[in-house]
């Protein structure tokens, strides 16, 4: 915990999203907020750009809103950022060969647990 706190602390602890950044159109702003919560502030520790007070997070929030204003769909706006910052910018790792283990192993763990339990009761029958 401590190191996490210290790491957070070294980012400038300014307020996160500022009222002046928000879009006038509430529907567009709501989309921007939802998307911003899924994007990692790449210089912070596991904070979304919506939560972070770092300068870079603000830049990314502004770029994201500029894309939405220009008429991008959610997918296009996310693609814009992953093209520049990589999958690293997504807090939810995308499903691709390199993350198959990550996404499928939990089900595998559950299956192994069930098999072990089954075996345990079989042996005792």
């Amino acid at each position: 915990m401590l190191a996490f706190l210290l790491a957070l602390a070294s980012a400038p602890a300014m307020a996160a999203l500022d009222a002046s950044e928000m879009l006038a159109d509430p529907a567009l702003e709501a989309r921007a907020r939802t998307l911003a919560k899924t994007l990692r502030c790449v210089v912070c520790q596991n904070q979304s750009i919506d939560d972070s007070g770092a300068d870079l997070a603000r830049d990314l929030r502004q770029s994201l809103r500029a894309r939405l204003l220009a008429g991008d769909s959610d997918e296009e706006a996310l693609a814009y950022l992953t093209h520049r910052y990589g999958d690293y910018v997504l807090l939810e790792p995308p499903l691709k060969p390199a993350t198959w283990v990550l996404w499928f192993a939990p089900a595998g763990f559950a299956a192994i647990a069930a098999l072990l339990a089954l075996r345990y009761f079989r042996r005792r029958e």
């Binding site: 990589g86 999958d87 690293y88 997504l90 807090l91 939810e92 790792p93 990550l102």
Partner: peptide, 20 residues
């Protein structure tokens, strides 16, 4: 640990955040 594993294999960099 997954981001660390990917790094060790040089298989790209991902974030494993709250949604996962």
């Amino acid at each position: 640990l997954y981001p660390l594993f990917l790094d060790a294999f040089d298989a790209g960099k991902v974030s494993v955040g709250p949604p996962y």
